[in-house]
Design a protein around this nucleic acid. Structure first.
Lengths: 298, 298
DNA sequence: CACGTCCATGCCGCCAGGTTATGAGGACAG
DNA sequence: CTGTCCTCATAACCTGGCGGCATGGACGTG
């Protein structure tokens, strides 16, 4: 009778979506796996939670009862884990900062140094954010604040202050014909295969495929990568090309890939991001302050 | 990052006990299993929760933070599951009654009939309670009310009204020399092997071994059983003898075993039991009422 | 009537959690 | 100082359950 949180998450997703299939997509599991888990939950409780209709899954009375309470429980749990991590970092006098790509570029070191001056004794720990879910560490409370390229999935629930804006460029295999050129227009790349982020990355993936600058054409996906290494390897290996912020040319230079200026896509920004719950956290605010002092908007 | 409830239970147990080893006993898992799980929790959180000393495990600051919140979360979850089951049964117009052995004996049918008259349209569903944890179904909300022999583990947290008291007798293999006798004194059984409940049953196990009437002598355990079938088979198979309420002679008669009257042990009682939370539940109270009308205390 | 959209089922590979056996280190008594 | 007992950690192995794929079956819709 040990209902574990996975079951609760699954249940909550199905209850919310009303469809096994759609919930399965959202949870990134197969539909049969979900079927089985939901049945198991029902079996463990000895209660039918859903009525199966050809149109989907609708909650029964008892199902409603459960659905009304589960989200709060999961939130409580998440909050407790956040607090725990938080206490741990405060006890060690560490501020943990998530980042992706080159973060705020050259300014990053300055920001950290400034923070060190403002908070003697404190240490800044930089942590790579996951590529497929750049804000996950932030919302999970694993980092206190983050320096991330925009746009971000779930950006509305976070505080975001833009620090700098830079054009996006294109990353090509060194031997690629287009790498001969000094500058490119995005429309020339429409038919090229791209190395994309996982589907799980959602709008993030779309943004770096620049789907909105393709006038409706489907991008070709040559490979999927969820970290910079795989991503560069895929490009170097000729599986596709990719977009990147210009600073990537400095932070992710490596033999076999070439960075070229690009026109026809919106620039990308780097922002400092934190959870609204940290609005009152003087430490986070000090760090944000250090960032804003060095803000550079072009 | 999907901390499941098992981990939380484990953590709570270790936090409370202050010892991995003791917590492992309480949870009925091996100590290495606990070690691994606790380490995994720490790894998932990226936080050290305990400091390991030769004397045991003591919480770190972050550990305290977590320990302060986990029990409430687990309680919330348990409560939500209870509610769910509860709604389900109310929706089906079912009152679920747990029982063990012969329940309230011949009175049981009368009680159910009386309840049927008081609540037309409602159905009573009888459910075997687990032998090793007779009140588990009750506290988990799986049954609304129960008819159980006393004493019960965790009895203080429950409402208990005694319905009848009956002497305990002894169950012997049919061919056993003592089965020739018409009546026995408990001290004659001190050296006999007993068929006992699992260690997990705690005081319940002790009670049916009548450890308090042995003047300090350790009982001999011939076999362990956690349900009436195994139990009777073990007795019939000559692995040991056992104590039982007298009514068991009628409800668990079978070839190969003999029931004989016994002196020198306290009698056992059967009570109607419910959770304090059901004090205000008219349905449960009606059932309790039906029980008390037929109360018979000798 | 064929098709699309649901959910259910069967089969299989794999990992996580369990177990037992053993190690390692500190505390304490003799 | 050394043996013993307590603690927790480690190693090797086994198994149940989760998840994935492929497929089936039921209902609604064009």
């Amino acid at each position: 009778m040990d209902v574990d949180t996975r079951l609760l998450r699954y249940f909550a997703a199905v209850a919310e979506e009303g469809h096994l299939t759609r919930a399965a997509e959202r949870l990134y599991v197969s539909q049969p796996a979900l079927t089985k888990q939901i049945r198991q939950l029902e079996k463990q409780l000895g209660v039918q939670l859903f009525v199966r209709t050809p149109a989907g899954m609708t909650l029964t009375g008892p199902g409603e009862t459960l659905a009304a309470r589960v989200p709060a429980i999961l939130d409580d749990l998440a909050e407790a884990l956040r607090q725990t991590r938080h206490t741990a970092r405060r006890a060690e006098q560490v501020l943990r900062v998530g980042f992706l790509a080159g973060a705020a570029g050259e300014a990053t070191q300055e920001i950290i140094a400034a923070f060190g001056r403002r908070r003697p004794g404190w240490r800044v720990e930089m942590r790579h954010a996951s590529w497929s879910a750049p804000t996950a560490d932030l919302t999970a409370g694993d980092v206190d604040v983050a320096l991330l390229p925009l746009p971000l999935p779930g950006q509305e629930e976070l505080r975001v202050e833009v620090l700098l804006t830079e054009p996006r460029c294109v990353v090509l295999p060194a031997g690629h014909p287009l790498a001969e050129r000094e500058g490119l227009a995005f429309r020339e790349l429409w038919d090229e295969p791209f190395v994309a982020a996982p589907v799980a990355a959602g709008t993030w993936r779309d943004y770096w495929l620049a789907t909105d600058a393709r006038e409706g054409r489907e991008p070709r996906i040559g490979a999927v990568a969820d970290n910079p290494d795989d991503w560069l390897s895929a490009v170097a290996g000729g599986h596709g090309i990719a977009l990147a912020p210009e600073s990537a040319a400095r932070y992710y230079a490596r033999p076999g890939v070439a960075y070229r200026p690009l026109t026809g896509v919106a620039p990308s920004s780097v922002a400092v991001v934190w959870r609204p719950a940290a609005d009152a956290d003087p430490l986070v605010q000090d760090f944000v302050g250090c960032c804003l002092e060095r803000r550079r908007l072009d």
